[in-house]
Amino acid sequence: MTISIRNRLNEIGHAHRSFLTFIGNYQVEDALIQKMSIVIDEVLSNIIQYGFKSQEIHTIDIEYIIHKNILEMKFVDDGRPFNPLMIPQPDLNHPLELIEGGGLGIHIMRNLADDINYSRIDGRNYLVIKKSVL
């Protein structure tokens, strides 16, 4: 399934509802759907809140695929280059620093996904997140 949303927080609901429609065609446990819904929220809120310098409308393209029991979610945007994998892993002995210092959403996303791949091609960020649905 492929959809596009605008860079506004209230459009995340559209991405989420589309995901539920898509994943509803497969036998996937509720907990996994909840976790991937969190990942979608973290990725999109990050792009929307920090990806663009101005209030101009931009489009974020999203693709959901399941192939060989692997869910693949691809997010493409033309915002500033941002590789979430470059954010250092936080010190979990100091949870308040993690929570207040930023990067909390990325930390959660990295823990809930099996594999995350980032590339920057022709001025666009490509973030591909994989999760086994078995």
Binding site: K35, P95, I108, L112
Partner: peptide
Amino acid sequence: LNDTVKEVFEISGFHMI
């Protein structure tokens, strides 16, 4: 807290707060 919420709390250290 359901299992997913619990897991997110543990990942982020919220269970200590």
